[in-house]
Design a binder for these strands. Structure first.
Lengths: 220, 220
DNA sequence: CTGCATCCGCTTCGATACTG
DNA sequence: CAGTATCGAAGCGGATGCAG
């Protein structure tokens, strides 16, 4: 990207993370370290050369590192540096600022008319980390699995761990609850904006113990 | 901007404020309402058609409003909406994240070799608002004027008001202190990273009462 | 399969000139 | 003062090719 050439912290930040796709790559890597292919799956719509370009730039800027595995495995892992992880607070605030816009786009009409918006379950990880909390740290830990019905979209698991909320990629072994449905319904129920019966009526599939939902909901 | 087409708060935010120049326009308007010409002065390097385009887009997105004055005055004022002002926390965090990069670029070598970086004194307003605090709210208010020597760059004034820090555009009437110098020296002294004698040796001009500096410095 | 590089059409950006 | 018009250059998106 062309530099703004301004002696200003914000302008300097944008010189580095202001490029198209860059902050979304950071989003992916904040959730977990990724292979190239994971990034492509987590960033629907990105052109492969763009991704390669951005990864190179971000590496030279010190935002991420490339971990080469030895020849037998031959897979490269991309991981944020400390400097890259330092973007998390700003990124969460931006995501929060954008959240109200999700209501209007409710799943239909993406970039072009007719195509619906892309969604990946793991995109819920950052907002959930922000909005959930363990209300009963002394009780035995619980696990909640989230999934859409879509093929090629992996589930994620919420688990309580020492009083904190952890979000993991992948399905849960012996989950206390499993929620299947649209992101609107899943988020609505988890943040306490919709109640469970209403969400089920609207199409959410719920299996397990409804009490675990209250366990992880933040007050307010 | 082309939409990412992703059902994700961050992606939605970037659909709106991810364009080149957009967040810098928000920076300008967070500092004060602006006329078109003020924006051009505060955004060195912007092409006039870009500015016009962005202002139109931001107006339709509900981030800013255009206040037309009646014919005699014939000047248009651009002002952030509530929704636009809500970007402030995220923008401050991004600016903070970029701040360490200012050390390396220390005033030389901007976009092209040979040209130095642009600077406007009012760009200090947001970081100062963040880093200063009135240590003695009961004492009579103080005013500190900041200026570079550059022509065409207006000074700003820090003043204490009911225990809070206010930053105003323009020179102060009967200031308690006036600091003239590079942004590095001014910020260094104000946040307590450099002491005054060191900064004066490095070229900072200081007039007034050194005690007012301690009055506004945050602990830490 | 993973991790890119190349090519091509299109859009956006930047600089300058001009106007109500 | 507050923009529009124009045009070359750079960036982006999509498709495809290819080596380890």
């Amino acid at each position: 990207m062309r530099s703004y050439g301004q002696y200003c912290g914000l302008a300097k930040a944008l010189d580095i993370i202001g490029d198209r796709w860059t902050l979304l790559i950071v989003r992916e890597l904040l959730i977990r370290p990724c292979r190239y292919t994971d990034l492509r799956k987590g960033l629907p719509g990105i052109a492969t050369n763009m991704l390669a370009d951005r990864l190179r730039e971000m590496e030279t800027e010190g935002i991420l590192t490339r971990e080469e595995a030895p020849p037998p495995v031959a897979t490269t892992l991309f991981r944020l540096t400390k400097r890259g992880r330092d973007l998390e607070p700003a990124l969460l605030l931006l995501g929060n600022w954008g959240a109200p816009l999700l209501a209007k786009s409710s799943g239909k009409a993406g970039a072009k008319a007719g195509g619906k918006e892309a969604f990946r379950t793991h995109w819920l990880a950052l907002p959930l980390q922000l909005h959930l909390a363990d209300q009963h740290p002394r009780r035995p830990p619980v696990r909640i699995e989230l999934r859409t019905g879509e093929v090629g979209d992996d589930p994620i698991t919420i688990e309580t761990l020492d009083g904190a909320i952890q979000i993991r990629m992948g399905a849960a072994t012996r989950p206390d609850a499993v929620l299947t449905g649209t992101p609107q319904l899943i988020m609505g129920v988890l943040v306490g904006k919709r109640d469970l019966s209403e969400a089920r009526a609207a199409g959410l599939q719920f299996e397990g113990d409804p009490a675990v939902l209250r366990r992880v909901q933040s007050p307010g």
